[in-house]
Nucleic acid binder design. Structure first.
Length: 619
RNA sequence: GGGCGAGUAGCUCAAUGGAUAGAGCAUCAGCCUUCUAAGCUGACGGUUGCAGGUUCGAGCCCUGCCUCGCUCACCA
């Protein structure tokens, strides 16, 4: 009705406003409704009545049935995770927290997967470096891994450097370039075929690096349910089933003429081909040498995700234990019969950066072409822009950059040049900065307690930083911004929560008791007054968390929740400054102030929980 | 050249077609004997890239133009 009111011509709008006013007046908690102009109604609520409901936590249900699947993009298990991976993992993890039924009665069943691209060129490059630059055999690789572990060195950091080194090595000597590129192709081929020393070395390395990735992400409270590997998609012949299905449905056909002669191709969306000519614009799915492209593998994988790939499933093995659940990995060996069901999703969110918009569209196109329109509709590319470095940040890190790059607002990171910021290094810096602050503020606390707080603050700063930007904003990374604990940051919200906790401790009460006390009080005289309006605004804002979550899910945009958490903290700090709770002498007034702090704190803690950020005991 | 995205305060970013375009940072001026200042208050800062159009109303929608980024392989 409100929408119609806005769109309607004036004469009708007046009638609609009357209609809407009548409806609103019937609602519980609505004190008065007045027409305030075209498209506006002034609604006054019965503040005391609504506040009681909020205190009793009668928030709306969100969500519904269904199995959602959030997939994080492939992190190639060939080197350390960097800030780009952090944005991906934090966005995906936060979104799946919103979908899960943890705090709300009706949530979604969610499975979080992380695709492991363990047969691609990136892994191949590291293996080339290991074998041809470092002279490692299979046995030598085992020794290397043992040696690094004994010295407390990290394999993913080792590979970070090696990968940059081998990338330069390919082209360093023009006379050798062709031979070295061939070496790379041979290695890639050996990985795809499997059953040889090269593939075994790659498996050792990528498994070791994968364990490190899970550890890095676990530092940020990010967990996975299943790790499907590309090697299994190949070895279990997912593609054969997909290929048969695509041919049957008529989306895949053999090209007999033109530049794609001898390939199996798929028509692109919107391309029109005149009769009797070849589709030069078609997407190649199977190369003329018979091997399948990435897009083909991706289509097969997504058919499996939706449970549309007949007769094919992964083998499953336990890979990593979290405190509350197991992370499984795919295997082409014997499958552990105790594995949960993965795939068969009703809806999919693919958390992949915006550079993959085109490839993602190919998958949707294939689904549509095969008549799986419902699957195509419930396939969401949760797209986000990359994390780049500011030129100043690049210089700080010791990289030499061109004059042209210096003029830009940001520079894309490059693993091939070893140009970027490692996730663990950044987190270490954040925690160290927080630790220094906590040490000076709380010398009385024990080492363990201070370390815990510093970690919570560091993680809070990092997760909030990655979430405060909307998805289609390129993050120009800068240490000054990321290391800040003031202003619009995670620690700002954490600090507001700690302040509230301090009130309850000093007042010798709890937030729960403060909220329960509201039931027996007459709050209307204070809340309805001019003076009570600022208090009321805190209550109103605090009651909007579920609305925010619904909006975040509908738009697939976690940034709104981050913004909300900050605004609520701002509102609370305002309240904190304006009303000195402990000095209040009037009993009713003090009870209301305590309850206001309690309701704000409750919702701030919840909001941060959804953002994957903990509230420290002290700060 | 095609596709996608962006252009808003000195900087980094917000803003369902709706009321006076908001935050943070930076700068300047204040506030710690207080529920710890990781905080609060105030000031400064805007022709929302340009030009038209639609609308009662446009940062947002439409058309054209300018600038920047990403992308467009039988790579992955």
């Amino acid at each position: 009705l409100a929408k119609r009111l806005r769109k309607a011509p004036r004469v009708i709008a007046t009638e609609l406003a009357g209609e809407l006013t009548a409806v609103l007046r019937e609602l519980e908690g609505v004190a008065s409704v007045e027409v305030a102009g075209a498209g506006y109604l002034n609604i006054r609520l019965n503040r005391a009545a609504v506040a009681r409901e909020i205190a009793q936590d009668k928030h709306a249900d969100v969500g519904g049935p269904g199995f959602r699947l959030v997939e994080h993009t492939s992190i190639n298990p060939n080197k350390a995770a960097h800030i780009g991976h952090l944005r991906n993992a934090i966005l995906g993890d936060t979104f799946q927290r919103l979908l899960r039924p943890d705090s709300y009665k009706r949530g979604y069943e969610v499975g979080v997967q992380n695709y492991i691209d363990n047969t691609g060129v990136q892994v191949a490059d590291v293996i080339v470096g290991l074998v041809h630059l470092e002279g490692k055999t299979l046995e030598g690789t085992r020794e290397l891994l043992a040696e690094l572990a004994a010295q407390g060195q990290r394999i993913d950091f080792y590979c970070w450097d090696l990968y940059a080194r081998v990338s330069q090595w390919y082209t360093a000597d023009p006379a050798e370039a062709a031979a070295r590129k061939q070496l790379r192709l041979d290695t890639l081929h050996a990985l795809e075929t499997g059953g040889n020393d090269t593939a075994e070395i790659a498996d050792l390395i990528s498994t070791a690096v994968l364990h490190r990735h899970l550890e890095t992400m676990e530092r940020l409270s990010i967990e996975y349910d299943f790790l499907p590997r590309e090697s299994e998609i190949l070895h279990l012949h997912f593609w054969d089933a997909a290929r048969a299905l695509m041919i049957e449905k008529g989306v895949l056909y053999e090209e007999t003429e033109g530049k794609n002669k001898g390939c199996m191709v798929m028509r692109r969306a919107g391309s029109e081909v005149a009769a009797g000519t070849t589709d030069e614009d078609a997407k190649v799915i199977v190369r003329s040498n018979g091997t399948v492209t990435y897009v083909g593998k991706d289509i097969a994988y997504h058919l499996w995700k939706f449970g549309l790939l007949p007769g094919k499933d992964f083998g499953y093995a336990k890979f990593h234990e979290y405190p509350t659940h197991t992370c499984w990995i795919s295997t082409d060996g014997p499958s552990d019969p105790s594995h949960p069901v993965f795939g068969k999703a009703d809806a999919i969110y693919n958390v992949i950066d915006s550079r993959q918009n085109d490839p993602q569209n190919n998958v949707v196109q294939a689904l549509l072409g095969m008549g799986f329109t419902e699957a195509a509709e419930r396939y969401t590319h949760f797209s986000y822009e990359m994390v780049a470095l500011t030129p100043r940040c690049a210089i700080e890190l010791g990289y030499t950059i061109s004059e042209e790059d210096k003029a830009k607002s940001y520079i894309e990171v490059s693993g091939r040049k070893g140009f970027g910021v490692k996730a663990d290094d950044l987190l270490d810096q954040l925690i160290a900065a927080a630790q220094a602050e906590v040490d000076t503020r709380h010398p009385d606390l024990g080492d363990e307690a201070r370390r815990t707080i510093a970690t919570q603050i560091g993680v809070g700063a990092l997760r909030y930083f990655m979430l405060r930007f909307t998805r289609n904003t390129v993050i120009a990374f800068d240490f000054n911004d990321a290391l800040s604990f003031e202003g619009e940051t995670g620690p700002y919200v954490q600090y507001a929560i700690v302040r509230a906790a301090n009130i309850f401790r000093k007042a010798d009460t709890t937030a729960e008791d403060s909220l329960a006390a509201v039931a027996g009080l007459d709050l209307s005289s204070i809340l309805d007054s001019e003076e009570g309006t600022s208090l009321w605004e805190t209550w109103l804002l605090a009651s909007k968390l579920t609305l925010m979550i619904e909006q975040c899910i509908a738009t697939a945009e976690p940034a709104y929740l981050a913004k909300y958490a900050f605004q609520l903290a701002q509102q609370f700090n305002n309240f904190y400054h304006r009303h000195h709770v402990l000095k209040e002498t009037d009993a009713t007034r003090k009870a209301l102030l305590l309850a206001t702090a309690a309701v704000a704190q409750r919702e701030m803690v919840r909001a941060l929980g959804y953002l994957g950020i903990e509230a420290p005991e002290r700060m």
